[in-house]
Design a protein around this nucleic acid. Structure first.
Lengths: 192, 192
DNA sequence: GCAAATAGTAGCGACTCGATACAATTTACT
DNA sequence: AGTAAATTGTATCGAGTCGCTACTATTTGC
């Protein structure tokens, strides 16, 4: 059976490039018995602050559904890389954290394709790409009603050098923050 | 069980942005009963020329393994969107083409996330992004020993306005080319 | 108080994807 | 010509992805 109709011209080269590149990056990371999504979850849990390490936050960070994330977390827990704990204030919440094995595995992770791909770019190019991607991503998330995430220190609730003992302070959650906290990813973050 | 170790600072913001964006784009396209990879395969088969519509070419285009592509093609064939045919010259090859149903489905495909994300960019930004992505992608493919693909008319084997009846000609395969051929994606393409 | 919203889990079905093994050609080198 | 090596593609396995539809706990909003 032969069909007479022939091929269509390629309409959008940029979208095509983006999709091909995306598949390569998103499909990367089949090592140490982990899947790509599991690596990404592990990396997130290593850089997110204690308020942001829940299945729900992971769900919007990864752009997946609750059910899928629940299984991803279960798989990481089975492998002994992630531990669950309860929240004493809100008992619906599950707090997640990396185990020492989780940190250990992350430390010896092989280089990701995304790093290799950007390694050849010059500094201004990296900055330009970062700015474009940030706009594309936050724009997309906003359209979906999702939070953008971001670093604690860039938040409008971040109070630097709060004078009551701790180095800094979160005005939203009314909690003291360490210097390490200030660098962490927070789901509540709002641009200053 | 509580672990004392706390979170690591985020090291590479660009790589992180890229990975998150990539997952959103690569995971997009769960409509009409097709999976994201199946849509991408369908789009490729619509824009690739007749020499490039084989399972092998699709394999490097999608960045997957032969086995996976074999199943993807089988799924599309089951759905009646793609047809197989034999090659009379090399009987190991399988030639793929879209059926009328395949073209029809593609024509009414919903807007992809990659399009929506880039829609908000200004023209020079789109050009800059395209150039960066092209370098990243071809650099990565070259490192892996894969072909970059590309449009027929941009190839060094493309002979415009060949005077023997057909509009153009491919010097590598010694074949006549139509105007439509010139726009198609070719696996043999080498930059002029 | 009680309905509605929120956080998470359970199970299903189709599919992805790397890995290994395998069959059918075609090509390269004697 | 004649065999070894390379090329093209399929078959099968197991773990996991992922959207979907329930479903169970909680907490919050009148």
């Amino acid at each position: 059976m032969v069909f007479t109709r022939y091929y269509l011209p390629m309409t959008d080269r940029l979208s095509d490039l983006l999709t091909r590149t995306a598949r390569l990056i998103a499909g990367d990371g089949h090592s140490a018995g982990l899947k790509p999504v599991q690596w990404q979850a592990l990396r997130y849990l290593a850089v997110a602050n204690r308020f942001s390490r829940t299945p729900g936050a992971l769900t919007t960070w990864l752009g997946q559904t609750k059910g899928t994330v629940s299984q991803t977390v279960a798989a990481l827990e089975r492998k002994g890389l992630v531990a669950r704990s309860e929240d004493s204030e809100d008992r619906r919440l599950v707090r997640l954290s990396l185990t020492p094995a989780g940190y250990g595995l992350l430390a010896e992770a092989p280089e990701a394709v995304s790093d290799a791909m950007t390694a050849g770019l010059a500094t201004p190019e990296r900055a330009a790409l970062e700015a474009l991607l940030a706009r594309m991503l936050t724009g997309h998330l906003a359209k979906r009603g999702y939070r953008p995430f971001g670093q604690c220190a860039d938040c409008r609730h971040f109070e630097r050098d709060a004078a009551d003992g701790a180095p800094h302070r979160c005005g939203l959650l009314a909690l003291p923050l360490s210097d390490a906290d200030a660098d962490a990813i927070c789901i509540e973050q709002e641009a200053a």
